[in-house]
Design a protein around this nucleic acid. Structure first.
Lengths: 334, 334
DNA sequence: CTGAAAGCGCTAACAC
DNA sequence: GTGTTAGCGCTTTCAG
């Protein structure tokens, strides 16, 4: 591949001049500029971004670490970061880390090696302590979907408890009295928090804790089915079901209907996330929207700000609230 | 951030030695190695990948260009490339280009600037000619979801015509006689090809062309709904419906059922792609699986091979066939 | 086994 | 305006 030297030689100028026309900035004589441009064209020259990064100490790169791309939720997250990257003229570097602190750390380190301007990280397995250390060392690093009080100015997160509360209030307002939940068996905070908010709110309305049946499984459609199956097997009646996420809710719909239980006529279901799937179920899912794409974009901007050493706190809230999306899977109790 | 010099200084060795311990390779005295390792640790040193890329002429980077991450189909595509990246110890660079040749070209150029080892590109708007030129200039570039005869050894593609044929045969085998299609109004080859295969096969079985109603719309759930609406409005009867993709098929199900037409009892529907959505509809979609993740992985491997100048053609087929996934949206005509 | 030195492709003073 | 030169952080001969 042609280098700046080749261009300079063919154009009969110094590499400095070529550099100047690349970077538009400084005034270069119209004639020489044209000449250089022509040569760059015919040589198919493209400046080496790695070399530029090295000398300018700017990689023009934005990193994001997520567990996996195939999960629509994380695709949305990545997309939010990508939007800011495009807006700022940065290249997106995507790194996946799943299942373990080590894997997540590897993903981050790879990004760090590239000297990304900023990094948005989704981590569920690295300890609070380690994360704090990491944040301390890397000004351009921001956490998403995680809340650590000590470094809250570097966290963009969702109020999961409030999500559970909203779900409960909605179901309550529809007249429901018998509740059940299907939740994720994964050992992370989110499921507990959502459940906590849900149950607490119910309790406040005089519905005793023992009354609401809870079943755990993997947080996908499959898991939704088996968890619902299990719920049904207990024989405990319910007319309202709160699912950990939309995928589980979808599984619940299948299983319920397969058992002759109509949604929402017999049972109302409420999901969580509002990923694309939510409008593909039938009935369409009433769910709690997790504005992850917007949050990811905000996280990217925040990361970029911290990088510039802007001390000013963000005007916008770092804690986000899920919002109720009313579709067709919930109905008033008859 | 600490550099190799810092490490060398603190460890009391030359940078060459530090470099050696970074790259494992050459023998370094156990003692000095340990010393250097310790210093790297305490300084939090991480080698600068940009500098390494510059000097070694290897970026250890794998690029992919797609229209957008939020479309599950393209997320899958990216995921396939990502899998190979991880396997080969490469970093994934993702670049989006949508809607126009210019935008797609920009996305590619950005990746080229980074000197990716290889690039998998999804392009629908750049001309065959331009693409051929690009492939000529960049040995590590491979096209996915596109077929250009002149450079077929650099294309990984799906036989869309055969997809249409398979759909037709399946519906025919179920006893259907009245067909309709909803297709994409976008001006790319795929919709035409799928339709062509479908209609041709029907014709071969004596079903005249004029008989099968076709309605176009945007290739998403919304479009599926409006296209189906339009179909219904014509009053032309049909018991089998071939949709351009799963999203449109999902829209069709909604609209049909909302009009009191049951799926699959009254109308059988077949989709295309088999993205995650396909199992979220109710009934679950019978569809043609587009093995895009596998294809993307293959494309990445192919790109990496070409890079190494390996002249040997791939053992595996570059043309892929969609496969019929039988679920619940199709039934025998009664 | 280790160090000195050249250079990857480019930018940014600093001269002219 | 344009050229010269000194690096950016690292790898890689080549000596020793």
């Amino acid at each position: 591949m042609a280098t700046i030297k080749d261009v300079a030689k063919v154009a009969g100028v110094s590499i400095a001049t070529v550099s100047r026309v690349i970077n538009q900035g400084e005034k270069v004589n119209q004639k020489t500029r044209d000449k250089v441009r022509t040569v760059m064209q015919q040589l198919g020259y493209r400046p080496n971004a790695n070399a530029q990064a090295l000398v300018t100490q700017k990689s023009k790169t934005l990193g994001v670490v997520i567990p996996e791309l195939t999960d629509p939720f994380f695709a949305l997250l990545a997309s939010g970061v990508e939007a800011i990257a495009k807006e700022m003229g940065l290249q997106l570097l995507l790194s996946t880390g799943t299942g373990s602190a080590e894997s997540e750390l590897d993903a981050l380190n790879i990004l760090l090696d590239r000297r990304c301007e900023a990094i948005v990280m989704h981590s569920k397995h690295i300890s609070d302590q380690k994360l704090q250390q990491l944040l301390g060392q890397n000004p351009g690093l921001v956490l998403i979907d995680r809340y650590i009080p000590e470094v809250q100015e570097r966290c963009i997160w969702l109020d999961n408890i409030e999500g559970g509360r909203i779900a409960a209030r909605h179901l309550l307002s529809l007249g429901h009295k018998c509740f059940a939940c299907i939740s994720s068996e994964y050992d992370i905070e989110d499921p507990q928090l959502r459940l906590q908010g849900f149950v607490e709110t119910l309790n406040e309305q005089g519905i005793s804790k023992g009354t609401v049946a809870v079943s755990m499984a993997t947080p996908n459609q499959q898991g939704g089915q088996s968890a619902t199956q299990e719920l049904l097997a207990t024989g405990q009646p319910f007319t309202a079901l709160f699912a950990y996420n939309d995928a589980m809710a979808s599984g619940a719909i299948s299983t319920l209907e397969d058992n002759g239980i109509r949604v929402p006529e017999d049972v109302s279901i409420i999901g969580f996330d509002d990923v694309i799937l939510a409008s593909f179920t039938r009935p369409k899912l009433t769910t709690l929207k997790y504005p992850v794409e917007e949050m990811a974009a905000q996280a990217a901007q925040l990361a970029l700000m911290h990088l510039d050493g802007e001390v000013t706190t963000m005007q916008t809230e770092m804690k986000h609230l899920p919002s109720l999306i009313r579709r067709a899977s919930c109905a008033r109790l008859r």
